[in-house]
């Protein structure tokens, strides 16, 4: 078997594994499980199907951004580039997990692509680093990473303020509140399904790889759709088999959370995700959700841990550059052992 075929097989397996890990790390369902709205297994099945469906039917434009549009005119991925991108983002995410730092796989992937392409341009004669990437697309992407959490914050803050002014603050007794929260729990169910669909749709780091393989001619369009469906199935399996532990753990800390609060956070974050997905922008769901929670806290005049937030922001910014350096170094390693 040729080296290229072996590489493609490795990339496909890694892409599918990435889809599985997206499901395994998805914590969106914890709000639903914490509120005890449905049975645990049913919640997993509903969430898994929604994420899988989002990935299968709605991820194409975001995948196109990562797999094609981010590249400069006339530039295509090579198998080693894709491999370097995957290895570097996986290494950085593993380091982040061991260090207990929540990192974005999207930022990590795009950072790695940036690093790999810069090294590629420097190593190839005639390829200018200023044209190797579509900097217009890249800058709109980076801007969206800053704007999406901010919009998440503002949207949640305003949504809470409006809901509280016209409805929540008028509830006076436990009976009334219980009844209202019971109704909100159904809205939470709908909003979580909605959120899961857009989480699946915005999971660019996985589907983008397959688009990249299709764009360079290693996969046909039929192959691409076949693997997207496989990824959708593996996202479901990831949630159902491994994600359940993350979800259960987080849900056990959320038993006191109000379904109305969960609904406000989920609907706000999913709207941001939806808008970004429709604009073909892969963003970090976890960043958006953290800022949505902060927006709710600000609305409720709760204390905000600015120190922890600052620390998190530093890692968010660093992710792009560290993943870039890592990606570049790995690609350089491939070059130096003359595999390319």
């Amino acid at each position: 078997m040729e080296l290229t075929s072996i590489l493609i097989i490795i990339l496909v397996i890694m892409g599918i594994a990435l889809a599985f890990s997206i499901g395994a790390n998805d914590e969106t369902l914890s709000a639903l499980v914490g509120a005890n709205i449905t049975k645990f297994k049913i919640a997993l099945i509903i969430g898994g199907i929604a994420t899988g469906a989002g990935m299968i039917f709605l991820s194409k434009e975001v995948a196109k951004t990562v797999g094609e549009n981010i590249l400069g005119e006339g530039i295509n991925y090579t198998d080693f580039m894709l491999l370097a991108v995957l290895i570097s983002s996986i290494i950085w995410l593993i380091i982040g997990s061991f260090a207990g730092i929540p990192l974005s796989s999207t930022h990590s992937t795009i950072g790695s692509i940036f690093g790999v392409l810069i090294v590629y341009s420097l190593s190839q004669g005639g390829v200018n680093p200023s044209t190797v990437l579509n900097y217009e697309k890249l800058s709109s992407l980076v801007i969206s990473w800053f704007l999406s959490p901010l919009f998440g914050f503002l949207f949640t803050y305003l949504f809470f303020k409006i809901l509280s002014k016209f409805f929540l603050s008028h509830l006076k007794g436990m009976n009334q509140i219980e009844k209202s929260e019971r109704n909100f729990s159904w809205l939470l169910l709908i909003s979580v399904i909605f959120a899961e669909v857009w989480v699946g749709a915005n999971s660019a780091e996985c589907i983008g790889l397959f688009w990249g393989l299709k764009d360079k001619g290693s996969l046909t369009i039929e192959d691409y759709y076949f693997f997207v469906v496989i990824c959708g199935i593996f996202v479901f399996l990831g949630i159902f088999t491994a994600g359940r532990y993350v979800i259960k753990n987080l849900a056990s800390q959320m038993t006191d959370a109000r379904p109305s609060e969960g609904f406000i956070i989920q609907i706000s974050s999913s709207i941001i995700l939806m808008v970004c997905t429709l604009l073909s922008l892969p963003i970090s769901h976890s960043h958006v959700i953290v800022f949505c929670i902060l927006g709710l806290n600000a609305g409720q005049k709760r204390e905000i841990d600015y120190r922890g937030l600052g620390k998190m922001a530093i890692y968010w910014v660093l992710t792009f550059f560290i993943a870039g350096i890592l990606g570049g170094m790995i690609y350089m390693g491939f070059l130096s052992v003359s595999l390319i």
Binding site: A35, N36, I37, M174, I177, E178, R182, S185, R258, P259
Partner: peptide
């Protein structure tokens, strides 16, 4: 009871 929110407090 089908109470989901205030059960423990009650």
């Amino acid at each position: 009871s089908k109470m989901m929110f205030s059960k423990a407090d009650r």
